[in-house]
């Protein structure tokens, strides 16, 4: 892996529109039962314009945005050996249906430790008006080949 990738910032991703049915599908998959994920009236009563997404929903856009780094052949990360080690979200507010977001990916660090490649990325998720909604920090490890 090319450790000189550390510090790189990529251009914003294509816009992604958060939809009610995608939120419902994601909530069903993780077992998030709160009615604010499904019923716009409940979400509005809580002060949101539409149904709100479960807390880890942003991973949909941040992981696909980070693909430009992870799968960059010039980075040279062996993706077949990659394990997701850590994931962290810093959240300003929940995403809601109708949000149109873009993600800006930064390579926080790229290191080799004991032969393992450690890649940390940050995906900043912005709303259409440039508001920072959430930041997703991911750490991936590509384990050294055992000889």
């Amino acid at each position: 892996m090319d450790t000189s990738f550390a510090g790189r910032v990529y251009p914003p991703s294509q816009p992604y529109e958060v939809g009610r049915e995608k939120i419902r599908e994601f909530a069903d998959a993780v077992g998030a039962a709160h009615p604010a994920h499904r019923d716009p009236a409940v979400a509005r009563a809580l002060g949101y314009p539409d149904v709100i997404a479960p807390t880890t929903f942003a991973i949909i856009v941040t992981t696909s945005a980070a693909d430009v780094v992870v799968y960059d052949p010039l980075l040279g990360l062996d993706y077949t050996r990659v394990v997701h080690r850590d994931q962290r979200f810093v959240q300003r507010r929940p995403l809601h249906a109708g949000d149109v977001v873009t993600v800006t990916v930064t390579v926080e660090s790229a290191r080799i430790v004991a032969g393992n490649a450690l890649l940390s990325t940050r995906g900043d998720v912005y709303g259409a008006d440039g508001e920072l909604i959430t930041s997703a920090y991911a750490s991936l490890v590509s384990r050294a080949v055992q000889l």
């Binding site: 994601f26 998030a32 709160h34 709100i52 479960p54 807390t55 880890t56 394990v83 300003r92």
Partner: peptide
């Protein structure tokens, strides 16, 4: 992490959460 996150928002509410991170 997502399933565990349902406990996190149950105890804190959806709008109050400022950070959530785990190691797998």
């Amino acid at each position: 992490m997502g399933a565990t996150g349902t406990l996190v928002t149950d105890v804190f509410g959806n709008g109050t959460l400022t950070g959530y991170g785990v190691r797998f």
